[in-house]
Design a protein around this nucleic acid. Structure first.
Lengths: 166, 166
DNA sequence: TATTGTTATACTCTATAACTATA
DNA sequence: TATAGTTATAGAGTATAACAATA
């Protein structure tokens, strides 16, 4: 599991730092969620499914960034614990609408508190300003590359209007 | 491969942000290193092996945070490309000393420049101060939990001595 | 007995391909 | 024909266990 190793030449590398920060947080949050019988992945699925609009498996999979075949086992697992259930969409009978059960919603609320706590503890060693900057930076870096104005062939031949997307 | 998905509820979660920042960087650096026939892992191994002291496989494995059985294939792979070679340690014939070849050292130098460039490009969207803060924060978070002043022995008989690596 | 390198094996995670039912 | 869910399967990546050589 790539447990924490001595830094040395590696500690200066962005790849190493990101990977190990991620691994350390994954372990910490897994430990925190364990008493609830959840892992970080489960929690992300629950959170996505808690959206006000009911989602199909495919839609949830897209939001989570996983394949629809992977989604099957994620939902299987939640359903086995009666945290969510499938129902055939009446509008389009190919689709499974996945909804949280009352139990799922309750557990989600508890788990979110646990997660927030785990995040706080994980970031505790950082000065407040640094923690803020970290989160801001990660939001930028985790997001897609900005579409980049993209000069239209034929149109807008000169200076880009600079309208930022999204 | 958990390709970039829509943010939504997930974009506020530290776990999501760390994971996706890491994934995006891993892809970017892999792309940059590809023309050299290396991936990020190869490069980390080369960098570790380039240390002034010659390392055994076990020692390199410890530095990289991988199992010694995993190290076998990493070295196999470098050796197949004549970037490194094994030699039996005369001092302890159980050990394989792994050394970079001239070719390995040359490639490492080139690859390090490529990696630095990739890091720079990856961090480019961040304001300089934010990039600095990010690196500082990651160094703190990627490292082991701070030994913590450690009160006297004789006290604290119960609470877990965390799982120590091996 | 303990350690190093090696091999074989297993486990986790996830994607791809093919199948079924719907559209 | 195309899409959603499902299943079977395969590929990374990595760890554990057992074994031989050496200490």
């Amino acid at each position: 599991m790539t447990s924490d190793a001595s830094p040395g030449v590696l500690s200066a590398r962005l790849g190493y730092l990101l990977k190990h920060a991620q691994l350390r947080y994954a372990r910490a949050s897994a430990r925190a969620l364990e008493p609830l019988g959840l892992d970080g992945r489960d929690l992300a699925v629950l959170a996505v499914l808690a959206a006000d609009v009911p989602l199909s498996q495919q839609e949830a999979a897209d939001l989570l960034g996983v394949d629809r075949s992977t989604m099957v086992s994620l939902v299987d697992s939640l359903e086995a614990r009666t945290l969510a259930r499938r129902r055939r969409s009446p509008a389009d009978r190919r689709k499974n609408i996945v909804q949280l059960t009352e139990r799922g919603r309750t557990l989600l609320r508890r788990a979110e508190r646990v997660r927030e706590d785990a995040e706080r503890r994980f970031l505790a060693p950082l000065p407040a300003a640094e923690a803020d900057a970290l989160l801001r930076a990660l939001r930028t870096l985790a997001a897609d590359p900005e579409p980049e104005p993209e000069a239209d062939p034929g149109a807008d031949p000169g200076s880009g209007s600079g309208s930022r997307g999204r």
